[in-house]
Amino acid sequence: MSRIFTTLCVGALTTAFATEAMATEWNVSLWGKRRAFTEHIHKLAELVEEKTDGDFTMNISYGGLSKNTENLDGISIFAFEMAQFCAGYHPDKNRAITVLELPFLGVDTLEEEVAVSNAVYAHPAVQEEMAQWSAKLLMPTPMPQYNLVGTGEPRNELADFDGMRVRATGGLGRAFEAVGAVPTSMTASEVYQAMESGVIDTAAFAQHAHLSFGTINEADWWTANLNPGTVNCPVVVNTDAYESLSDAEREALDSSVPEAIDYYLENYGELLAKWDSVLEEKGVEKVMISDEELAKFKDIAGTPTHEAWIEEMGAQGLPAQELYDLVTSTLEETRASN
């Protein structure tokens, strides 16, 4: 009797350990705090857990696993399985996707941003470059066009940008530099203090970030229609972690991406819809730049910056013109299909 009992106990323990061993838990490295910028990742985690009956879960960490500027490095050494990063934080490590950060690309909506990002992410040269970091591009983080908040008198003419100290990364930084501003690429979490202490006059962010990082609380004005471009911040997974998933887990992950993006778009749309009321509540003046000034900015910082990027990246062996053309053709196709 005792032998039978012992055998049953051993069998039960073995089954328990086997069940536990089969469970998959991923660590996800983000930064700041939960906000519109990260909602698709939370939705993804929720969907994956549901579809696998709790066998595949994600532990989402805000700053507890890595600095935001080191998330790609963390992925490369398998310090965690998933992470978000922004191309402008280390353009030398992700040169190919910086095409998506060029100023004045003409992307108008979040849906268009999703389309051009997905097209570029699928390009072999982009995937090859990411593979050097053991990273697989999973999904974009579509953001609207960046705009400035600033202190002091509103800057509503291009001449006002001369000498302006602005937080702007990647292609946006180049655009502002082209019109005489002094860009700095400090991380998002450093911007509020820099603005509060007067180290910078202005900060270029999407709406959610002006809220999340507090720059709107220091602002006297906001440019409603400057729209010089945006940054590209993909979500990536470690390739070994991805390949180690079971077929069912991989299916649960992949199939959840479009649902997570749809949720993100809906959630961000709600934020955009109430933005004017946020400005009013904070006492921030809404500045409209004239069409003439916008045209000047585009002439100076648009096409010349695009051409310089194509030449520079092409000299480094990337199919730069092909990537640039992919963005423009995808944009045309997306608009035609709508």
Rank of each mutant, 00 (worst) to 15 (best):
V236T: 05
D299L: 05
E266W: 07
S246D: 09
D291T: 06
E243R: 13
Y264P: 03
L294K: 01
S246Y: 07
A301D: 15
D220F: 08
A301T: 04
D220W: 11
S246N: 06
E281I: 06
E293T: 06
L253M: 02
I289T: 05
A273Y: 03
L226Q: 09
K286L: 07
E292H: 03
T230E: 11
A301W: 03
N267Y: 13
L271E: 12
E293M: 09
A248L: 04
I300P: 13
P258M: 02
K286C: 04
E243N: 13
I216R: 01
K298L: 02
E249P: 02
G314I: 01
E270H: 12
H208A: 14
H210P: 05
L318E: 02
S255I: 05
T303H: 15
N238I: 01
E307I: 08
G283D: 13
A315K: 00
P234Y: 07
E218I: 02
I300Q: 03
A252N: 13
G314M: 07
E266L: 12
E251Y: 01
D240H: 07
W221H: 08
W222S: 13
V257S: 02
I300V: 12
K286W: 05
P304S: 01
W275K: 07
V235L: 13
V257L: 03
H208Y: 07
P258W: 00
K286A: 11
I289M: 05
T239F: 06
N238F: 02
N267G: 05
E251S: 14
T223G: 13
V284R: 10
S212Q: 08
K282W: 07
K274E: 12
S244H: 09
E243W: 14
L318P: 14
E292V: 05
D247Y: 12
N238V: 03
L271V: 15
T215H: 10
E249D: 15
N238G: 11
D247A: 10
V231Y: 06
S256W: 08
E285F: 13
T239P: 05
Q316W: 02
L294W: 00
V236Y: 00
K274M: 10
S246H: 06
V257D: 00
K296Q: 14
E270D: 12
M313H: 15
Y263W: 12
K296L: 15
Y242I: 11
P319C: 02
A224M: 06
A260N: 08
E307C: 13
E243C: 05
V284F: 01
E281A: 10
L211D: 15
L211C: 14
V284P: 05
K282G: 04
G214H: 15
N238T: 03
K296V: 14
T215D: 04
V231Q: 10
W222V: 14
D247T: 12
T230G: 03
